[in-house]
Amino acid sequence: MIEMYKSFFKRAFDLIIAILVLPLWFIVLAIIGPIIYFQDKGSIFYNAQRLGKDGKVFKMYKFRSMKMNAPDLRNEDGSTFNSEDDPRLTKIGKFIRKTSLDETPQILNIIIGDMSIIGPRPDLPEHRELYENEEERKLEIRPGVTGYNQAYFRNTVPWKERIQNDIYYIDHLSWWLDIRIFFKTAKSVLKREDVFVTDNETKVKKINDIGM
């Protein structure tokens, strides 16, 4: 039954839920989109290259939360810098980050088939070169809009530990675990828990200038 869920029902549920939610997302787009645009006359979406199932690189959709041509800052471990005081965030950007509305365009990725509702959060393509030992196993399934690490730890653990949490999810994947992750995520989003990294000692480095 678990194998049937992994191979068929999980994707079927993703499609059904995404199609049902799509009309509601169009309402969010109609409200949030113009605000993002008129705040700095920039693009509404930030299309990020990410690693998908089996290492396939795909375009992940997000609402743009940063100023145009903002520098790309990374933590020392290579993960994306994320802070509530980040000066790169626009006013509406800080709001959609806190409420996780910036992630909602990924409903399109689910319909296309690049992502699942629940799975490992996708890494940047260059992160594949940093994988060690069994870490590349996180590419065995479709990445998710949310996942085990996002639901239970969000941004409170280092990148390498997040990968181990992703592998734990893959090894224990089931319908019941997905249900628990879904409701835990909803609770975290509503309470706005651990959205930003709060460690002020986190070292960051500037990679290049990109529009976010």
Rank of each mutant, 00 (worst) to 15 (best):
Y37V: 11
K41D: 12
K41M: 10
K41F: 13
K41E: 13
G42E: 07
G42R: 08
R50K: 14
L51S: 00
D54E: 14
K56M: 04
V57Y: 06
F58H: 07
F58N: 04
F58Q: 09
K59V: 14
M60Q: 12
M60Y: 11
Y61C: 14
Y61D: 10
Y61T: 14
Y61E: 09
Y61I: 13
K62L: 13
S65C: 10
M66C: 13
M68T: 15
N69C: 14
A70C: 15
P71M: 10
P71R: 12
L73R: 06
G78Q: 07
S79Y: 00
S79T: 07
T80E: 07
T80G: 01
F81D: 02
N82L: 11
S83P: 09
E84A: 15
E84S: 11
E84C: 11
E84P: 05
D85E: 15
D86L: 13
D86I: 14
P87E: 15
P87C: 12
P87Y: 14
R88T: 04
R88V: 12
L89R: 00
K91N: 15
K91Q: 14
I92Y: 03
K94V: 08
R97N: 01
T99Q: 05
S100P: 00
E103C: 02
E103S: 05
E103D: 10
T104A: 06
T104H: 02
T104P: 01
T104S: 05
P105R: 10
Q106M: 09
Q106V: 03
Q106E: 06
L108T: 03
I110V: 15
I110T: 00
G113C: 11
M115S: 05
S116C: 08
I117G: 00
I118E: 08
P120T: 14
R121P: 03
D123W: 04
D123S: 09
L124A: 05
L124D: 04
P125V: 13
P125I: 09
P125G: 05
E126M: 10
H127C: 02
H127A: 08
H127Y: 08
H127L: 07
E129L: 06
Y131D: 04
E132T: 08
N133Y: 09
E135F: 01
E135I: 06
E136V: 03
E136C: 00
L139K: 02
E140C: 02
I141V: 14
P143T: 09
